[in-house]
Amino acid sequence: MKIKGHNITDIPNILRRKLYLSSAFVRRPESQSAVISDLFIWRSDKSWDTYFELLDIYGLITCDLDNSTHRDSIFKFFNRDGEFLFEKVISGNNFARNTVYIRNLLENSGIEKQTLGDYGTFSVFHSIDKSLDFESSLTDRGYCGYEHSGSNFRGYVHGNFDAISKFENKLELLMGYGKLRQSYNLQHILTGPSAYEIALVNPTDKQQSVKVKITTLENEIYENYSIPPRGLKIFNVKVLENQSSRVKIISKMFMARPTVFRCTSNSMDVFHG
């Protein structure tokens, strides 16, 4: 039996989906000419450095890297509370890959270290020669490399969200959130001995209350955070030898998928959780 074209057995799933996905998963930007970026995570402190692999995305889409020098990329930096810090325009190069050292951009911004903080988010908006075919919009979900303790070695992780759009000078956060709180179970079992840092971005246009549940064999710990739009919270989970933990993130965000930094006594690993 079908109701409005749906099998009756599918109706509970459809209702649940409508209940939890009560708004657009990712909003359409106001203009098709808008360009989109992830909210990448920058870390710059005694332990961590961040690098961004800047590519001419428009040139890759159109198979035209000969004109990369005519194209710019605008980096916009935000602090952990999502407040705008500064922007840096990087002109296109006569080569295809530009590994941008984020510490240099932060230090040359003229903003005091105390105001910058140790971590935050940034976006990269590319100029386009003309609108893309098939009513598509350009997005940069590119690659960050994280270096730990001056190791001269980068652990790479790709972008996660189509988080923020820029059209002319207007920024718009695109990721959706619902009316109901929902759980995101980290798809990774934390194992020790190791120190985890779990970095959660708020890519929505509303301040988000987040409850984190950390479960070990012995106990459950709850922590509560509030993350402003474009902001970032990094929370720590230490796991002892022969122990393991699980992390659940409860919020109204549809995509509360964090980036995970795992450090052991002499190694590190960075990945999406």
Partner: peptide
């Protein structure tokens, strides 16, 4: 041998959103 990095690259369709990917 104490540091490793592993990440997949995106397919070219990931350079765009909306429209007909």
């Amino acid at each position: 041998m104490n540091l490793m990095s592993l990440e997949h690259t995106h397919p070219p369709g990931s350079f765009v959103v909306r429209g007909d990917r």
